[in-house]
Design a protein around this nucleic acid. Structure first.
Lengths: 253, 253
DNA sequence: ACAAAAGTGTTTGATATACACCCATGT
DNA sequence: ACATGGGTGTATATCAAACACTTTTGT
């Protein structure tokens, strides 16, 4: 738990360094064991979970801020980040204010203000990252989208909106590329699509269509060790992938 | 031209009423004579044109603010508005600051700050609105997208981004409905699509596909007075239209 | 009568959908 | 041997693309 002095120091520092009223929150998606997961922080102060978020420095481009914040709070660096919406209900940060209002007078309390938050979503290779909590957090963990804990502020809503965006953009953004490991099997990729779209897809048609895009390279090897026939491994052909996406992968599922 | 006193009063009022660092700008699209147009204001202070924009009141939902601002600055009321992006380059409002910095000391100057702006786009029936400039503007006029004048700040960029969004969302949002008058002909609707997509479409295939969606109602009457064969008039069937859009009008052009 | 715009229908190719059989692997 | 998941092929329906002729209207 923060002491009053710590909180006071933090507020003073924040007032100096950051723009007031504006924050950034990141929804980091990962894909593991056939499930979509998001990175959540558990704060020291509360029993609640939060999206990794932070504030915008006074002369800092928003994109940079989003990357910096994600790095600071989770250790993740150099990943695909995309702005998707601004959440600005006047009451959305009230809860945060309430929490601290006993400890500091209103005019000294950085949180005693309305905050708009700019939502970014990120897509990462689950196995390629090592989530590390920052000093304000007990833990930084992957949580299954279907088993979200109680979330602070309006963060549940932010996650849902991000997921909706993901669905719509599945045909326009390199979503598969960023979420899958370097090598993956066709059934694994299909599982990702099925999870995002929340819909079963036909195995054979999925494969034909994916291969038809010409964005996948079939590897020599197969994924050994499974209990059944060893599936082939694929990787994304970055060249063709980017080209195909700018044109838009036409047709919806 | 604003006097120093007027500017000073405005700044004091703004500081009291609005959140700092945040603005809203609206790109209002209309369709007239086969051309996409946007509403621009010509300011009294400068020889430049601006998007209708304004600030967010301290306890006001963003959506409400966007509607209020549009009403205040252009007279337009109760129209389709949709948030599409936040523009936050630290230098984007520098120009505005430079303009006023001679007149007021920096700490009294509301504009001497960084502003992020939340972009909204609006779609209106050209004939159904009566653009009216506010007290800060000489004029409020429709301008052809292909003949944009010199625009202040980063407003040219905001317009381009809005147009890009329009293109992508053509299959997901009720774009036709909001831009067309109650009754319209098939060639008129086609012209709208062609203008937004910047692409020629086949007359017959367009008609078949549009009718195939089941969102149009054919009227008895035809559009008389044209120099040639009188085209039929159509209107949108709001019920089916909404239903079709939630499912997404599948397939791209 | 003719030019220009609008209405309508048909053919063709591509793509989505549905479905069935064979193959490899661990138990 | 068999259950399970993975690989592959084919027939069918649906839709997009390309294209031509007829109708209406003002000049």
């Amino acid at each position: 738990m923060l002491t009053k002095t710590e909180l006071s120091n933090y507020c003073n520092e924040a007032r100096e360094k950051y723009l007031p009223h504006i924050s950034i929150d990141c929804v980091v998606f990962g894909f593991h064991e056939g499930m979509l997961k998001v990175l959540l922080l558990e704060t020291k102060n509360q029993e609640e979970y939060y999206l990794p978020g932070g504030f915008l420095q006074k002369v800092e481009p928003i994109e940079n801020a989003a990357n910096r914040i994600l790095k600071e709070r989770t250790g993740l660096d150099d990943i695909f980040l995309k702005q998707f919406y601004v959440f600005g209900d006047p009451d959305r940060s009230k809860e945060h204010f309430d929490l601290y209002k006993e400890m500091l007078p209103e005019n000294e309390n950085w949180f005693a203000n309305r905050f708009l938050t700019i939502g970014y979503y990120a897509l990462v290779d689950f196995f390629d990252v090592d989530p590390t909590p920052d000093q304000f957090s007990i833990s930084c963990n992957w949580v299954d989208l279907n088993q979200l804990p109680k979330l602070g502020l309006d963060h549940a809503n932010i996650i849902n909106t991000a997921l909706g965006t993901l669905r719509v953009q599945l045909n326009y953004q390199p979503i598969g590329y960023n979420l899958m490991p370097k090598l993956f099997t066709m059934p694994e990729l299909q599982k990702l699509y099925e999870t995002i779209l929340d819909k079963k897809l036909d195995r054979r048609n999925f494969q034909r269509r994916m291969l038809g895009f010409g964005i996948l390279t079939k590897a020599e090897e197969t994924r050994k060790g499974g209990a059944h026939k060893a599936p082939y491994l694929y990787s994304f052909d970055m060249e063709n992938y980017k080209a195909a996406l700018t044109a838009g992968l036409k047709g919806g599922w």
